[in-house]
Computed example of a mutant assay.
Amino acid sequence: MSQRLTFTTANVQNLVISNATDALYYEVVTPEWESHLTTVRRLDSRTQGYDTIGNIRNQSGKPVAVSMYGGEFMNEELWLRKIEGESRQSRWEFDDDEGNYFSWTVAGPNLELRGIDEGGAQTPKAIATFYPHKRYVMVGMISQHAFLEIEPSAVVSLDTILVSLLVLQQKRKKNSL
């Protein structure tokens, strides 16, 4: 059964991402005094403390570098590689440093995540789908919060998947895809 992770706000730089039971709980924070750095933290349910899983360095509101698990910052375009496709259909590939490769593609207003096998081919079925928030009459209050529906097989790579999704959403908001 798939997990549904809800995004509490439309702002991808300051929000909480969690499932219904809060067993999966992430906090995304970009402090006003440090607006160039977005931090993604996961709540450890055993210790009730937060573990930093990723940092996104921003410049003029655009992501420029990513760091996972306290490692060195890597250029965002090298970490989340854009692959030009047919008829201007692009995709963004990344790996989770565990040998798993993934690819985000645009599917209407949604983003779909597919696995990539050793031959470089995408899996036929999406393993995660991001549904953006919906607003009343396109400008008013949010009528449906954004959410990510993810298959159980992809939950082991959830940290990297979420950071890649946040980077993509920041790029979409700045129209720099």
Rank of each mutant, 00 (worst) to 15 (best):
M141H: 12
G108Y: 12
D96I: 06
G120S: 00
E118M: 06
V155P: 00
L113H: 05
K134W: 08
F102R: 11
I150W: 05
F130I: 02
Q169G: 05
V155A: 04
D97N: 13
S164P: 04
Q170A: 14
L113S: 07
G115N: 08
I161R: 00
L165Q: 03
L113A: 03
K125Q: 15
N100A: 10
V163I: 13
P152C: 00
G140C: 03
Y101A: 15
T129S: 14
E149P: 05
T160K: 08
L165G: 02
P152M: 03
K173N: 08
G120T: 06
Q169Y: 02
V156H: 09
H133Y: 06
P109V: 15
Q144Y: 07
Q122H: 15
R172C: 05
Q169F: 02
G99T: 01
W104D: 11
V163A: 05
T160A: 11
S153A: 10
M138Q: 14
F147Q: 14
H145G: 11
T160G: 04
D159G: 00
T105R: 15
V106F: 04
R114A: 07
E151N: 09
A121T: 14
P124A: 14
V106M: 09
R135A: 01
Y101W: 12
T160W: 07
G115E: 10
V139K: 08
P124F: 08
M138F: 14
S164A: 14
M141Y: 12
H133M: 11
G120P: 03
Q144M: 12
I161L: 06
V106R: 13
T129G: 04
T160S: 11
M141I: 11
V139N: 11
I116K: 09
A128W: 05
I116M: 07
I142M: 10
V156Y: 07
K171Q: 15
R172Q: 13
V139H: 13
R172N: 08
V106I: 14
E98N: 10
I150H: 03
S143D: 10
L158Q: 03
S164I: 09
L148Q: 05
T123F: 12
D117C: 01
F102V: 14
T105I: 09
V167K: 07
T105C: 06
L165F: 00
E151Y: 08
A146M: 02
T123N: 07
K173C: 01
Y136K: 15
E151C: 00
E98Y: 15
M138K: 13
G115Q: 12
G99V: 11
G119A: 04
V155W: 05
L162S: 02
N110D: 15
G108I: 09
I116H: 01
V139G: 09
K173P: 01
S157K: 04
A146K: 01
G140Q: 07
L158V: 09
E118S: 06
S157H: 02
G140Y: 09
D159F: 01
